[in-house]
């Protein structure tokens, strides 16, 4: 039990002393997962909308694939991305393995299905008459889409939160494609694994506390946006 107190105290100490190494690791986590979430949003929002509103034959099949993708194990993604990015792999000449970009790629693959799937279900849960009414009023396709997004803003923000949550907390892919290299690709989760394996439990707990705090702050911001009265 003592180790937990020591960990919490150390977390406070690290936070308020602005330990540069911890700060760097925290910032990199935020940047990498933030970028991955943003790219997932750029992919997931249009794709989810298309799957929810479009009418084409393979729609259900693709949707089932996307829904499966929401449960993609990070280590499987990590392995697949590694195989492609290793020097012996097809994209080896890009020299991306063990860089933050490699982590962003892996995390985007993890987060994009989450955002896509939740976007699709958010739009499908809207009253179908709304779309008909908008079209009846003479709105263009873009205007219809825009209005539907506005209407579904609550579940859409939840989709962003879920996407961010799935990548800020994953460790398997970051470890494999990033290599947990100090000062270069070490993020909070991989640092926690390392410190635990080294027996530095207090430091591991401190980093965990920082990770939770970070996740809380990001979600607090998104929630306040989501719940704002208008």
């Amino acid at each position: 039990m003592e180790v937990i107190w020591k960990g919490i105290l150390q977390a406070l100490e690290l936070l308020f002393s602005f330990d540069t190494e911890v700060l760097k690791v925290t910032l990199l986590s935020l940047q990498v997962s933030g970028l991955a979430t943003a790219i997932s949003l750029l992919i997931g929002l249009p794709l989810g909308t298309l799957l929810a509103l479009g009418k084409f034959p393979s729609r259900k099949f693709i949707l089932s694939l996307i829904n499966t993708g929401m449960a993609l194990p990070p280590v499987v993604v990590g392995l697949a991305v590694s195989i492609f990015l290793w020097r012996s792999g097809p994209l080896g000449s890009l020299r991306l393995i063990y860089t933050p970009i490699a982590i962003v790629i892996a995390q985007t693959i993890i987060a994009a299905p989450v955002v896509t799937g939740l976007t699709a279900s958010a739009l499908q849960s809207l009253d179908p008459r709304l779309k008909l009414q908008l079209q009846g009023l003479g709105a263009s396709q873009a205007q219809v889409t825009w209005s539907l997004w506005k209407e579904a803003r609550l579940p859409l923000l939840a989709a962003i939160m879920a996407g961010f949550g799935s990548v800020i907390s994953e460790v398997g892919a970051s470890m494999m494609v990033g290599g947990n290299i100090r000062n270069q690709t070490r993020v909070l989760t991989t640092a926690i694994v390392l410190e635990t394996s080294k027996g530095e439990f207090a430091l591991a707990i401190a980093l965990s506390a920082i990770l939770l705090l970070l996740a809380y702050l990001v979600n607090l911001f998104l929630t306040s946006v989501q719940q704002r009265r208008h």
Partner: peptide, 9 residues
């Protein structure tokens, strides 16, 4: 915001 954070690395 995500875009901003994103460009950072």
């Amino acid at each position: 915001l995500f875009g901003l954070v994103a460009c950072a690395p």
